[in-house]
Design a protein around this nucleic acid. Structure first.
Lengths: 190, 190
DNA sequence: ACTTGCATGTAAGTCGTTACATGATTGT
DNA sequence: ACAATCATGTAACGACTTACATGCAAGT
């Protein structure tokens, strides 16, 4: 999957590993983010397999390794995009803790959930801000400015959709945990 | 995390690795499920670290290795349960594909989403059935039967909550993807 | 006789992280 | 001068999966 995200980010032109890391942080960050320590070796492997080609370039005294996707890499990426999509495992540690919540004192349970709801609110705020930022920058009358903005951050309709999904997802979770808190409060009052 | 789920399942008595695998399939399965190939080595490590102790028992000609949690294991599990809970990364491959959806033909995009929505419905049906099964079995007048049932599958209020979360979670996703489908249909009509 | 389920285990491989290491440039 | 950011890389480690390997018991 690591390799697919790299090929994906190279679809609109050559980039360095560091650049991709920065793009990831500002876009896929909330659901997918990989460390530089796994990006660089991944690029080496992709190059070995003929999926990407590397071009060294010296800019402002710095040696940069620009990677671009090859024909073979394009095919590989398309194949992956075309594969049937299946439900992934949630692998959510929070759910696991709640599954074992009977082993924790009632007070502590409440504490944990209240703290978690606060964190979820923070995430909602953060993603909403990002989404608003995009909306403000794209509602400008100056079409050139809008396009420059969209291009700089590689934003398209689907990437905005992913921001929307993030907001809605965390709103759902927050609501569920708030209701859950009410339910366990009722139980504990007995 | 692997080790924590094992310690968690041992909280209500000694079990074999195989038993835990079965319990996982019928309870945490939809959000957490590990293979036997990682359960057995994990138990060995836990034993080496003094978290669990093993007792060999011969039942019906079969040699079983029953693990039980030690004092140290109890502490370790409690510490884990008490740690502040933080938002985990979603790491959802589906989101990643949609992020790169502009590289796929509009028709294929629709196909993928329609297929995914069907799968989500299947998941909703599956978890709803499980939840109903629990509800039917616990609405019995015979209290002994109810307790036997709850005990057999190690069900408590929180484990039922986790089933509820699963149902609600997949309903949320299904709705979002259905709305998403309508939105991309509108865009493609231009 | 055969398949399914119970029960355990190992080996190879994939995937990813953190920590360490280096060094240049840019802003304060 | 100093910190932050740009830019790349390696080593050690952790977590987990699949495939392989074994063997008994129970049901059909």
């Amino acid at each position: 999957m690591q390799d697919k995200i790299l090929l994906g980010f190279l679809q609109d032109g050559e980039k360095t590993g560091y650049q991709i890391k920065k793009l990831m942080e500002s876009s896929t960050g909330y659901f997918f983010n990989t460390s530089l320590g796994s990006i660089y070796p991944a690029f080496r492997k992709l190059e070995k397999d003929g999926m990407v080609k590397m071009k060294q370039k010296v800019t402002e005294g710095r040696v940069k390794k620009l990677y671009s996707v090859t024909e073979k890499g394009m095919e590989c990426f398309q194949t992956w995009l075309n594969e049937e999509i299946t439900i992934p495992k949630a692998r959510d540690e929070v759910l696991l803790k709640i599954f074992f919540f009977s082993n924790l004192e009632p007070e502590k349970r409440r504490e944990k959930i209240i703290f978690y709801v606060k964190q979820l609110q923070g995430m909602i705020d953060h993603l909403s801000t990002l989404k608003n930022l995009v909306e403000v920058n794209t509602s400008n009358r100056d079409e050139k400015k809008v396009n420059d903005y969209l291009n700089k951050y590689k934003i398209d309709a689907f990437r905005i959709e992913m921001l929307d999904y993030g907001v809605e997802y965390y709103i759902f979770m927050k609501k569920w945990y708030e209701d859950f808190l009410n339910r366990i409060d009722d139980v504990d009052k007995h």
